[in-house]
């Protein structure tokens, strides 16, 4: 096999992505890398992701997690990613510090459910949803690093396409990913 063939068969980096308690804004921002997506798919292939609709994550090189942990299902998905991904990356404010969903943390979840489904204005014959299919909400929303070990963080709400691109290309090239000014942003 000559050198050219060796390059051609180099296995692609396998990437999985998911959104937990997030708004998909980080995924949208990911798509904001626009035509660079074509460059990216030369280097990576996608496993579980809203982009592929694969439902469970297999062994991967990189996992990107958007959103914090607000219910039991989030915890299961997060653990599945940690088990399968060599490198796990928290992307966006919600994954990193709970973000907007965590604004509910100063309210009692039981009282919230009661007010919304039972005692609230215009509620008749209400009941708190309790179908076994529904994941149980946690009492508070947590950033993902409080549940599993996280290797890298890409802050921003959402991080810009450029920030995500810089981070991923650094990582794929074997450099320490670095977001300097002005890519490092919390808002």
């Amino acid at each position: 096999m000559d050198a050219m063939d060796a390059v051609a068969v180099k296995p692609k980096v396998r990437v999985a992505t998911t959104s937990l308690a997030g708004c998909f804004g980080c995924h949208m921002s990911f798509l904001d890398i626009d035509e660079r997506l074509l460059e990216l798919v030369e280097l990576v292939e996608f496993d579980r992701s809203p982009l592929t609709d694969i439902k469970h994550c297999g062994p991967c090189d990189i996992g990107l997690i958007e959103g914090g942990v607000c219910n039991s299902e989030n915890v299961h998905v997060l653990r599945e990613f940690r088990k399968n991904c060599k490198v796990l990356i928290a992307i966006g404010a919600c994954a990193i510090n709970g973000g907007l969903p965590a604004l509910r943390n100063s309210f009692d979840i039981g009282r919230c459910l009661q007010e919304v489904y039972l005692t609230g204005l215009n509620v008749e014959n209400g009941q708190v949803p309790n179908d076994p299919e529904l994941p149980l909400p946690l009492d508070q929303v947590h950033p993902i690093h409080e549940v599993v070990r996280i290797d890298y963080f890409i802050p921003g709400c959402p991080p810009s396409g450029d920030a995500i691109w810089k981070f991923l290309t650094d990582l794929l090239a074997g450099r320490t990913p670095r977001l300097g000014h002005p890519l490092l942003r919390f808002d």
């Binding site: 510090n97 709970g98 508070q140 690093h145 409080e146 942003r185 919390f186």
Partner: peptide, 15 residues
């Protein structure tokens, strides 16, 4: 936090 490249809160949030 930008200047010192703080990427994560690292500790548990007090909320």
């Amino acid at each position: 936090a930008y200047e010192l490249e703080m990427l994560s809160p690292r500790f548990e949030q007090f909320f």
